[in-house]
Amino acid sequence: MKILLKEDSNKGLAMARENEKRDGMMTYSIAGDALIIIDHTEVDPAYYGKGVGKQMLYKIVDMAREKNIKILPLCPFAASMFKKLDEIKDVLKS
Rank of each mutant, 00 (worst) to 15 (best):
T27Y: 05
T27H: 09
T27P: 05
Y28R: 10
S29V: 09
S29R: 11
I30Q: 13
I30Y: 09
G32C: 04
G32N: 02
D33R: 11
A34R: 15
L35F: 12
L35V: 14
L35S: 11
I36Q: 10
I36A: 10
I37C: 13
I37S: 09
I38M: 10
I38D: 06
I38N: 08
I38A: 06
I38L: 11
H40Y: 11
H40T: 08
T41E: 07
T41Q: 12
T41F: 11
T41I: 10
E42H: 11
V43S: 08
V43A: 05
V43M: 05
D44G: 01
D44A: 08
P45H: 01
P45Y: 01
P45L: 01
P45R: 01
P45M: 01
A46F: 01
A46C: 01
A46T: 03
A46V: 02
A46R: 08
Y47Q: 12
Y48W: 09
Y48H: 13
Y48F: 14
Y48L: 03
G49W: 02
G49M: 02
G49T: 03
K50H: 04
K50I: 01
K50R: 13
K50T: 05
G51C: 04
G51N: 02
G51S: 02
G51V: 03
G53V: 01
K54Y: 02
K54P: 00
K54N: 04
K54Q: 09
K54V: 02
M56R: 04
M56I: 09
L57H: 06
L57A: 04
Y58R: 07
Y58A: 02
K59P: 00
I60E: 07
I60H: 06
I60R: 07
V61E: 01
V61W: 04
V61I: 13
V61N: 04
D62G: 09
D62R: 02
D62M: 00
D62K: 10
M63I: 00
A64V: 08
A64Y: 05
A64T: 10
R65M: 10
R65T: 11
R65H: 06
R65W: 11
E66C: 02
E66A: 15
E66T: 15
E66R: 15
K67Q: 15
K67S: 12
K67A: 13
N68W: 00
N68S: 15
N68H: 15
N68V: 10
N68F: 06
N68D: 15
N68Y: 09
I69P: 11
K70C: 05
K70V: 06
K70M: 14
I71G: 09
I71Q: 08
I71V: 14
L72G: 03
L72Y: 14
L72N: 14
P73H: 03
P73N: 03
P73S: 06
P73I: 05
L74K: 07
L74F: 12
C75Q: 11
C75S: 09
P76Q: 01
P76I: 02
F77P: 04
F77W: 03
F77R: 04
